[in-house]
Write a protein that binds this DNA or RNA. Structure first.
Lengths: 219, 219, 219, 219
DNA sequence: CATGAATGAGACTTCATTCAT
DNA sequence: TATGAATGAAGTCTCATTCAT
């Protein structure tokens, strides 16, 4: 359930000389992980910075070396999740050219992961609700696939921005189902199929694309 | 933007209409309205009871004559919105027998009202996020229409609970668009059409049902 | 050692109807008195608002019904002291027409009171150091007497603003002596005599004016 | 605006001048100078050690190689200022035998420097308010001149300790005028003249002694 | 019922100080 | 010695809640 920050990479190159640097990165990472665990349990505005300190097992003052407000924490976690998401999705659907299929894969992967790790999903759902940045990141990825799908003739939707909303809203709803423990058999496939139909795929094609085996993490 | 409570109805019929009662009801209503205005601007957990008192122009202590905790306030607002929703939707789609059409009407009405009154929509979106009771009320209404639509052969979805999620998620996403000011032409119809397609309506039927004129408030 | 606020008077006329009003005034008065006691012991910036709460025997939150910052407390105490000062000095030197004598009386009264109540003096010295408002009030009183004295030919100073500084600085220094317990016999008269000489009174007249019996509180 | 410490002198003569020592002295000096700059802007108890570190461009921990507490910092700055004062005044009024004139010179020099460097004056006024040591140093210098002046028949004051207070209080008031930007023409001379009159000099002699040209820094 | 002053728990924030590097 | 991350005590401030009027 750990989260990788892109900041970590960047900072390494920007200030590689500081002595306490690796420790600082570890602390920061610990705070982000702790925040994720908390957001899995409580809503963002219910979570106090002191709770975060306790969860991360640092003292109160330490937090203020990293974040000045709760919003900064949320944003940082959002960035971290978005970054991790981009990485993993891009990797997994790397060889798939079909835009509609890529969307199906994305939706399914999210829901499957939500089922496997409801805490992660709970946190993600909440952060999506608060953090515009994370929403944009997700949208950008989906948008590309939507266009590809439309160009390839697999999808025919009326309005791209509404289609975007539909994909994200349904995927999020699926994740919420997982969090609330009301999933059904092949929940991921069924949501994906409905989404594709909503996007204008024919019922047959929707069913077929939604049930293709998922690409395996290469190695 | 006023909200009518079912409690109000009950009291009207059950108890004598003394002056004290009318005043009490007005104060309670004022608190609910104030809460709604606040939830339009700030998140539920960011909203303090002191703010509520100020917005409603009553003193702090007065709140405790009506609600015991903050949660009770949220719940009461949720109940009030749900109740108002039930009333208005039931009234408007009273004469419509087609389940699919009723769903289209519901989705469109929500989105149109969100466009007309973004504050109301903002509050609703937030409360839906927190209040399970409101979610259930919405779900019950949709569920009936889904079944009717399926029995009538207009819809063919794979799983009812997922279909439910899809309808509510897409309607909510449409409202959020309105709140964020990124609606498109005929936003309501386009969302409804996509939803119907996702629920298994044929593209032609989806388009037709989504673009039928809305029933007018009878009176 | 109690301090009377002019606000008290004003408020009585402005909001005489509030129920909890007298209690509020008592609390406010208690806070000002407590602040005075604290400023007698510690410097203004060393004094925390929690200490003030404890000294006044109210709970932490109560303070914020009256003052938002430490500065507001200092200012309020300054106003209260200035107001009390104006009252008492005006009363005592009411019948004295000689400007130089009025100055001598003022200087002596301050020093005598400082000797009698070093805590009061300690607080006053500190507040004078921080609160421009109190300094102005003092200056205004002295200024009138300086002009009168000059017009009457008893005083002849080179520059009024510097003369003002001299009077206040020497009176304050005298009070500080009292606080630090290094007063001498007839400290008040000796300081007054030096001040008058500095202001251009002849040595003989200075000695005489400084040693006249003080007016007694009438009644 | 730099401050020279007597410690510096001592070290120079007592210990070998290794490179490490020079650096150590520079750091210490930097801290004292930084403290002076800060005290010019904020009150002593408002000034934090973190600010001091930042102003001196050293890290927090470094301070503790030089001072154990905040009080030690204030004291050290006080000592430094007193030491610098002694040096400069002694040098400048070296050839003057007249006690009254020496006092006039001292008062005037302080006020002139305050006008030329209000930051320095602001810091000095504040530190005088807190640091007894600095007050004693100043007093010792003045005391000697007072006695000389009295013995020479130029001054005739009633009480030495009160005379001391008068001189220091008026000089400080003059500096405060400079800090607050409300000086007048020949402010230094006017204050000195009043002080001498207060100390019992004849008006004519006071005016003459206060307006003599100041000794120039020899060399 | 309405009021609003008082309460006090608890969150937020700062900062002097320590210590491993 | 210099550094600066970590600490945690101590302060600041808010706000849900109570209660006398």
């Amino acid at each position: 359930m750990s989260v990788k920050t892109d900041t970590e990479q960047a900072t390494h190159t920007l200030e590689p000389l500081t002595r306490g640097h690796k420790k600082k990165q570890r602390t920061r990472q610990g705070l982000l992980d702790a925040a994720l665990r908390l957001f899995a349990r409580k809503d963002v505005f219910e979570t106090g910075l002191l709770e975060l300190a306790e969860e991360a097992a640092v003292s109160t003052g330490t937090i203020y070396n990293y974040f000045r407000t709760r919003e900064e924490v949320v944003e940082a976690v959002g960035i971290a999740m978005a970054s991790e998401f981009s990485e993993s999705i891009s990797g997994l659907s790397a060889g798939v050219e079909n835009g509609a299929q890529r969307i199906a894969i994305g939706v399914r992967l999210f829901i499957l992961r939500a089922i496997a790790d409801p805490n992660w999903a709970s946190a993600l759902v909440r952060i999506v609700h608060f953090d515009k940045g994370l929403r944009s990141t997700l949208a950008m990825h989906v948008q590309a696939d939507l266009r590809t799908g439309a160009e390839q003739g697999h999808l025919s939707f009326i309005d791209e921005s509404i289609a975007l909303d539909l994909v994200i809203a349904c995927a999020t709803a699926g994740m919420r189902s997982a969090v609330e423990g009301r999933t059904v058999e092949q929940h991921d496939e069924k949501v994906a199929e409905m989404v594709l139909k909503g996007l204008g795929a024919s019922p047959v094609k929707a069913k077929k694309l939604a049930s293709l085996p998922l690409p395996q993490p290469n190695k």
